[in-house]
């Protein structure tokens, strides 16, 4: 390539390189450096190098303190308590939310995608409706959900009460029980129900994943299903043996993205947190943000939390990557 050609090539690539260096690699390096200092966001004094002290403070256990009955979990049972119990609490919340939300969204997206691929009159409108909440997103959507989930006045509990009322005569007649006094979930005002509430919200905004899976479904050759049907395979077998293996790359992608998003969930937690949840929605990213940018403004410590969160997220996405790689190896071997 001529000198001029090479210059042009670099010129075209330069915006990405500059952007990557300025907004990705640079901040990554800076945050790694910050995590080894006692930098404060509320002080103009020079940050000092503290080695791994931030990581020890985040993950360490104070053996001189009495164990707390309401501590972070069984893995720290016995004497002592974490030097920062909220690190374990927030990571535990993020992991629990991920474990709940990823299977639900994945299964829900797949079911919706399969349903919406059917050639039924009027389904194009349904597809738009399914996708619309994904477009709304953000704080506005969460505020609407918070009202829907209001335990006294919200639409969700009104629907549950209506179901109770409708079922009451039947239950009285058949089982001799009444639905009067049956509890309704307190959703965002309860430590038990706050995470399921968030899963419900997430499940209502799966339009993006549905779109990806529908695109993948369109690429599944119909003759594969037809051949299987000729061999006597039923609908369930065709789905399990033909469609799902063909969808695996898309499922890996959606699962991976959902896992990363769930582990890094912030807006939901920041907007919908309430004292009655007892930190039930304090996620790792939220705790990081509060530590860095609200009191106590510990930037170095928050940077260490960020790297710990990145490490845990890495572990969580490893199975997805392994599954995806197995597929790639299979394809390479098959060709």
């Amino acid at each position: 390539m001529s000198l001029q050609g090479r210059g042009a090539a670099w010129g075209f690539v330069a915006p990405f390189i500059v952007g990557f260096a300025a907004w990705c690699a640079g901040p990554l390096a800076a945050s790694l450096f910050l995590s080894l200092t006692d930098a404060s966001g509320a002080s103009a004094r020079r940050a000092e190098y503290v080695g791994l002290a931030n990581y020890r403070a985040a993950l360490g256990v104070d053996r001189t303190a009495r164990a707390d009955a309401a501590g972070p979990g069984p893995w720290l049972a016995g004497d002592g308590r974490p030097t920062d119990p909220l690190v374990y609490r927030s990571l535990g919340n993020s992991l629990a939310y991920t474990a709940m939300t990823v299977p639900v969204t994945l299964a829900g997206s797949l079911a919706l995608a399969l349903l919406l691929m059917q050639r039924v009159r009027g389904f194009s409108i349904v597809r738009t409706i399914v996708y619309l909440p994904h477009l709304l997103g953000g704080v506005a959507s969460l505020v609407i959900w918070s009202w829907l989930l209001n335990p006294r006045f919200g639409g969700i509990n009104a629907a549950i009460r209506a179901v109770y009322a409708a079922a009451d005569p039947l239950l009285r007649a058949t089982l001799g029980v009444t639905t009067e006094g049956w509890p309704v979930p307190e959703w965002l005002f309860s430590p038990t129900w706050c995470k399921p509430a968030l899963v419900l919200i997430r499940a209502g905004t799966v339009g993006g994943s549905v779109l990806i899976l529908m695109a993948a479904l369109q690429r599944v050759p119909p003759e594969l299903g037809e051949a299987a049907a000729l061999d006597g395979a039923g609908a369930w077998t065709r789905l399990r043996r033909v469609t799902l293996p063909q969808l695996r790359p898309a499922l890996v992608f959606v699962g991976l993205i959902e896992t990363v998003f769930a582990m890094q969930a912030f807006t939901e937690s920041y907007v919908l947190s309430h004292r009655s949840q007892q930190d039930g929605l304090l996620f790792a990213a939220t705790y990081l943000y509060r530590t860095a940018f609200e009191s106590p403004h510990r930037l170095g410590y928050a940077a260490a939390l960020g790297w710990i969160l990145a490490g845990v997220t890495g572990v969580m996405i490893a199975p997805w990557l392994a599954w995806g790689r197995r597929r790639a190896a299979f394809e390479e071997g098959g060709t």
Partner: peptide, 8 residues
């Protein structure tokens, strides 16, 4: 009032 008695 508890939190769920006068929510929001």
């Amino acid at each position: 009032p508890g939190d769920a008695e006068l929510p929001q």
